[in-house]
Design a protein around this nucleic acid. Structure first.
Lengths: 134, 134
DNA sequence: CCCCCTTATTAGAACTATTCTAATATATAT
DNA sequence: ATATATATTAGAATAGTTCTAATAAGGGGG
């Protein structure tokens, strides 16, 4: 993804297009690894950890990325959220698999009915284990 | 819920029926407040915080309760999971609303297809805000 | 019914992911 | 180009959770 594209995305979401934000956003766009803040900081070694956290907070506020809490490791993982999707988590390995083969609209309608709220988003994690008989 | 019932539930899930576990489980069964470990510890004042955490871990392992991470407050919240349900979270107030008016079986099937795993459970949080025009 | 042994509880220390501070630097509108 | 509000940073601080190791208690076997 070009710098100009990253700059535009950030500005369209009301964020100043700093070098650090462009780098963190590009990292999340191009890595499917659901990294932690520490992992991003290690790879982008010229950006401070505080800035990684600050930037992740801003990107979450805009909805560009989401956070996933894996209870196994106690760390927050982050995921670019360009297209809505959900996560399937292997309980034996903590591997996170992206999936988008399900229409969430009926769930939104059910949630609206149950709560009276205007639905703005969702986080779905489905847990599984390796099949006994593949 | 009677002590005998609590004892039976714990033993059926392979856990020793200690006073502390019965108290924590009963607390979660009877409180719809999605409490944190600290809140449980404050209310059950004769049970140590370490035991509250240990017990919550054990109850999660058995599937009797689940954890919900609210990113707003950085604390883990816990919820008795006697019947499958999902959560609608008011982003303005962090209020957690239980809802069960949606059949998750099709999502399980989609997740199985996407991952090849045998699905064992799910955590769903739907986010919303107060409607503009109620 | 009472041991025995495994498992649970506890207080407090330790850990660590995340947030805060306050000084410096940078983006962007004018 | 300048001003100004906003962003970055290193390091300290915070706080939720986990660990330690000593004590207590559940419950199966006799």
């Amino acid at each position: 993804m070009t710098d100009q594209k990253l700059r535009t995305i950030l500005q369209e979401h009301g964020l100043k297009a700093t070098y650090q934000r462009m780098a963190v956003l590009e990292y999340l766009v191009t890595h499917k690894t659901h990294p932690t803040a520490e992992m991003i900081h290690e790879d982008l070694s010229n950006i401070s950890l505080a800035t990684v956290y600050n930037t992740l907070d801003k990107l979450i506020e805009t909805g560009l990325i989401i956070a996933i809490d894996i209870h196994d490791d106690g760390k927050r993982h982050f995921d670019y959220y360009g297209e809505p999707h959900y996560h399937v988590i292997n309980q034996q390995t903590s591997e996170i698999i992206d999936a988008d083969n399900f229409d969430m609209a009926p769930l939104f309608e059910a949630a609206r009915k149950a709560s009276g709220l205007t639905i703005t988003g969702y986080h779905i994690e489905v847990y599984g284990v390796k099949s006994e008989n593949p």
